[in-house]
């Protein structure tokens, strides 16, 4: 049961994200199976004719479209949004960011990714981790955090935890 349309939309968006994650995982597993079968029965997989012009997906090594200062400004904006409780919006903004820009932002924040070509998910989690750190560092103490949370709940009762 949803109390407001906004709550329903949020839940829907969450479920879509979860389903996409599941489909990505299934696709990855199918790819692995296909690879193994191809190695055993190469003739069963003739190379497909070209399917016309492929749309070019920006690669991680492509140059970013933002400067170092712009990346830091974007980051400050994301931290501000997260502090205001707009975490879904932060997630969406990062998800829609081009891969070269996301990789650049992650580099500018010194996120340790460990690989030459980290996946979008790794980069996204790295940036989200930095945002959490910034939030925890900027709130001086636990009592202040609790008070802030209470203020948010007072002004926006929709996000209050459900009471029994």
């Amino acid at each position: 049961m949803f109390r407001t349309p906004e709550e329903e939309t949020r839940e829907l968006a969450k479920e879509i994200r979860e389903l996409k994650d599941i489909l990505r995982e299934i696709s990855r597993k199918l790819g692995q199976i296909e690879g193994r079968v191809k190695r055993v029965f190469p003739t069963a997989f003739p190379s497909l004719p070209s399917q016309g012009v492929r749309t070019s997906v920006p690669k991680i090594n492509n140059p970013p479209t933002i400067s170092s200062q712009e990346a830091l400004n974007i980051y400050d904006e994301l931290v501000k949004m997260a502090k205001e409780g707009r975490k879904d919006e932060v997630q969406r903004r990062l998800e829609t960011m081009g891969l070269p820009d996301l990789a650049f932002l992650s580099r500018e924040l010194g996120v340790p990714v460990g690989k030459n070509k980290p996946s979008r998910k790794v980069l996204l989690n790295g940036v989200l981790g930095r945002i959490s750190e910034s939030m925890m560092l900027s709130t001086s103490n636990l009592r202040e955090r609790i008070n802030n949370q209470q203020d948010i709940e007072k002004t926006n009762p929709d996000i209050s935890p459900e009471k029994p």
């Binding site: 924040l109 010194g110 930095r130 750190e133 910034s134 560092l137 900027s138 001086s140």
Partner: peptide, 22 residues
Amino acid sequence: PTKEVQFYMREVQKVCDEAAKS
């Protein structure tokens, strides 16, 4: 300093400014 060090330098700077004010 590496980018990671620069990140923490910026964060500590903010913490410092915030504490100086509050």
